[in-house]
């Protein structure tokens, strides 16, 4: 088992475990924290997959900014395990089963394909380097880049419209 494999399995366990903990935690604050753990694990995978830039962005944007926002809102609302609403147990089971089925179906479908068994991914490569991404982003992807601003504008307007108190 190479160091890559060890890292892979470690990160995988961390991601899946974190995800499960996030979903099952009663306290919303714990959920947020577990989700941050997942994000860190995924960032680790990004590095394994040679997507260093994304790994960094993921930690800054997701684990840093977005999750803090979530945490902030949760704190604002003063949520804890006591006032956490609980679903009907049957509905929970149904939800679990549905999610599990989804997983099973995916895996069953994909396992059949033999081509995928031999397809390997290695570490190393140029793709994820920031200069390459930056060049592409500002040439080929300039339209989405620019148009994203519209998205942000509208999100901003939305936050203003919805968030302003008193009207």
């Amino acid at each position: 088992m190479s160091i890559t494999e060890i890292l892979f399995w470690f990160l995988t366990a961390m991601a899946v475990g974190g995800a499960l903990m996030m979903v099952t935690s009663k306290n919303p604050v714990y959920s947020v924290l577990w989700l941050i753990v997942v994000f860190f694990a995924i960032s680790g995978h990004y590095i394994l997959l040679n997507a260093q830039f994304l790994a960094v962005v993921n930690i800054i944007v997701y684990a840093g900014a977005i999750m803090v926002l979530f945490l902030f809102v949760i704190m604002l609302m003063n949520m804890n395990a006591d006032n956490e609403p609980q679903k009907n147990i049957w509905l929970k089971i149904a939800g679990m089963i549905a999610g599990g089925c989804l997983l099973l179906v995916f895996i069953a479908a994909i396992r059949q394909t033999e081509a995928l068994q031999i397809q390997k991914v290695n570490t190393g490569g140029q793709t994820g380097l920031i200069h390459l991404l930056g060049k592409t982003l500002f040439t080929d992807y300039v339209l989405p880049f620019e148009i994203s601003s519209v998205l942000f504008l509208s999100a901003m307007v939305g936050a203003v419209v919805l968030g302003r108190k008193g009207d």
């Binding site: 679903k87 509905l91 149904a94 939800g95 549905a98 999610g99 089925c101 989804l102 179906v105 995916f106 479908a109």
Partner: peptide, 16 residues
């Protein structure tokens, strides 16, 4: 919750 459940079931069915 129910709506999403229906959706997921839909996804499953169309998948299969």
């Amino acid at each position: 919750g129910n709506y999403v459940l229906w959706m997921v079931l839909g996804v499953l069915i169309f998948f299969v």
